[in-house]
Nucleic acid binder design. Structure first.
Lengths: 140, 140
DNA sequence: CTGAATCCCGCTCGATACTG
DNA sequence: CAGTATCGAGCGGGATTCAG
């Protein structure tokens, strides 16, 4: 997983990888996929547990996200013919491999979100975000 | 950057990180941000070079993406008062730190996109994607 | 409890035209 | 060359309702 290419120094761009970036982004870049995966990283969960844990997701989006993940082989769905019905979702090995990516993103976010917030606030003062920033400032 | 938490074994979910995941996803999970950053990873580029290199991006989206990136301190914008005008965009250190994340995603995509495509195709045959797959199958 | 189906709003994004 | 302004279609996604 680590360092198939070197990232330091002036290297050529990888145009042939752009398609893959777009592909993975189209797949996991939507609003709920990442959160669902990270929520499942701790172990199998039922539908209602997922909905409770993800906090803000609707049934529609949860169902849709789970379907996509199952279709791509990132999670498995196990339905128990009981009453009341019970369905558990669990990451596959492929899904677990994505956790590393999610984790890298999360760690980057944790490490830099303060810095970004600071930059953003500073930019609004210096006028980089003119249009919307000014509108919001005058509105608020 | 590496291993702030361990990822193997049954660990507790990190609900407190969900907000960060959402935050970074809202920031870099859009359609063009990642590609712009990866395109800039090779070095400074001008506006038109970016547009030519990203392939498919419109002026509107390019401008918007660049503005957001600049506002967050991920890139710098340098305008030269010449004729014809010239503007160069370059990653900041903060922006460069994101390349690792982008790279991790790209490598994951390269490594697994074939597997995912296979799973997806197999799922359609076994009927997991019933609704939409059936509709598309009957339509096509 | 676990979903499927429907309605509908808002926002994103793309195309176009215009400016400095 | 490097943007800005405006308009319109498409769809993501939330609330609600219905079914097994």
């Amino acid at each position: 997983m680590a360092s198939a290419r070197q990232i330091s120094g002036p290297c050529q761009a990888w145009p042939e990888d752009s398609a893959f970036i777009r592909e993975v982004l189209d797949r996991i870049g939507d609003k709920w996929t990442m959160l669902t995966i990270s929520t499942l990283s701790a172990g199998p969960l039922r539908y209602s547990d997922l909905q409770a844990n993800i906090a803000g997701i609707s049934q529609r989006m949860l169902t849709q996200t789970l379907k996509h993940l199952e279709r791509d082989g990132l999670i498995t769905r196990t339905a128990y013919a009981e009453v009341p019905p019970r369905v558990e979702y669990e990451l596959t090995d492929l899904g677990r491999s994505l956790i590393e990516v999610v984790l890298a993103m999360a760690e980057w976010a944790v490490a830099h979100h303060g810095e970004i917030a600071g930059n953003r606030a500073a930019s609004e003062l210096t006028g980089i975000g003119r249009a919307k920033a000014a509108a919001k400032a005058s509105a608020g």
